[in-house]
Simulated scan of single mutants.
Amino acid sequence: MTLTWLITGVSSGFGRELAEQLLAGGDRVAGTVRRPDAVADLVETYGDAFSVHPLDLTETDRIREVVDAAQARFGRLDVVVSNAGYAVFGAAEELTDEQVTHQLDTNLLGSIQLIRAALPHLRSAGGGRVLQLSSSAGQVAWPGSSLYNATKWGVEGFCEALAAEVAPFGIGVTIVEPGGARTDFGHGGLRFAEPLDAYDGSPAAAVRAFRDGGPPGVVGDPARMAAAMIASVDQSPAPLRLVLGSDAWTAVTQVLEARLAAVRPQRDVAFSTDA
């Protein structure tokens, strides 16, 4: 069955990988980009199966218009992938107000508004899927990535509640939590705060290494990760979370176990506060 996908941020990274695999497999893709020339080769290769929609997610007043245009172009939307985003690294005190606002507008508000705009179309079609790209950083907090963590934790909370809201309409929601992947995320997808001397040698300063390409040993294969995302659409019911990469699985399971270990001893105190 041919599916129609709406994917944000198809010019690079996971968005590009998803678009290429889906189009090669015969599906149709409506992709958003900030620069249409970045996907000119896909337009040339796949023609009418691929439609391009210029969009910067910070332009939240245009998101519904773009989603409606994608629906009109193909007549239906089956899968919506909220993929576009980036990371700002640096200690919370090092961040500028502009960096904070732009990161929240893109990763959190942009994702929320995209999904909200797509829901009427999915409901009218009798169902569909939403894939929200998060990260292992949606479960694990690291010094120096507090703002990025805030956006990913925020969108995960939104999507977890959303999944229960839209299940009666046949709409499945999956939060994708990849670990490190060999994408071009570090070239444009990563931005940095201006370092303060006070944080030299602190835990937050460790993220500064990413300026030089990041730590070695990144294991994630973006093609395999994209293929796993695509395969998840055939699963019923939709998996609420899809953890990708051995590094992500290890980090997420460790932090969840540690979180439970910290909360369990508080049972008596918790119950003692009941009226």
Rank of each mutant, 00 (worst) to 15 (best):
2 T>W: 00
2 T>M: 09
2 T>D: 10
6 L>E: 09
9 G>Y: 06
11 S>D: 06
13 G>D: 12
19 A>V: 05
19 A>P: 01
20 E>V: 15
21 Q>P: 03
22 L>E: 09
23 L>W: 02
24 A>W: 00
28 R>Q: 15
29 V>G: 02
29 V>N: 05
29 V>W: 02
30 A>R: 11
32 T>L: 10
34 R>I: 02
35 R>N: 15
37 D>L: 01
38 A>V: 04
40 A>I: 04
43 V>E: 15
45 T>S: 10
45 T>M: 09
45 T>G: 00
52 V>L: 08
57 L>Y: 03
59 E>M: 07
60 T>R: 14
64 R>H: 15
65 E>R: 07
70 A>Y: 10
70 A>S: 14
71 Q>Y: 12
73 R>T: 15
73 R>P: 12
77 L>C: 12
80 V>P: 03
84 A>H: 06
87 A>H: 02
88 V>G: 01
88 V>T: 14
92 A>E: 03
98 E>F: 02
100 V>K: 07
100 V>E: 10
103 Q>C: 04
105 D>S: 12
107 N>S: 09
108 L>E: 07
108 L>N: 06
108 L>I: 07
109 L>V: 15
115 I>S: 03
116 R>G: 08
118 A>M: 13
120 P>D: 07
120 P>M: 05
122 L>E: 06
123 R>G: 02
124 S>P: 00
128 G>W: 04
131 L>C: 03
133 L>E: 09
133 L>Q: 13
138 G>P: 04
139 Q>Y: 14
144 G>C: 09
148 Y>I: 10
149 N>T: 11
151 T>H: 13
152 K>C: 04
153 W>V: 05
158 F>A: 09
158 F>E: 06
159 C>M: 06
161 A>T: 15
162 L>V: 08
163 A>Y: 04
167 A>C: 00
170 G>D: 08
170 G>I: 13
170 G>T: 13
172 G>T: 06
173 V>G: 05
174 T>G: 04
175 I>D: 04
180 G>D: 14
182 R>F: 03
188 G>P: 07
188 G>K: 06
189 G>Q: 07
191 R>V: 10
193 A>Y: 11
194 E>Q: 14
194 E>S: 13
197 D>F: 01
206 A>Q: 10
208 R>D: 12
209 A>L: 09
216 P>Q: 12
219 V>L: 06
221 D>F: 13
223 A>R: 13
224 R>M: 08
225 M>A: 14
225 M>L: 08
225 M>K: 05
234 D>V: 04
238 A>G: 08
239 P>I: 11
239 P>G: 13
241 R>W: 03
241 R>G: 02
242 L>R: 07
243 V>W: 06
243 V>F: 11
245 G>A: 05
252 V>A: 02
254 Q>V: 05
254 Q>N: 11
255 V>D: 11
255 V>I: 14
256 L>T: 07
257 E>P: 03
259 R>F: 00
260 L>N: 12
264 R>K: 14
265 P>W: 01
265 P>R: 00
266 Q>T: 15
270 A>C: 08
272 S>Y: 06
273 T>Q: 13
273 T>E: 08
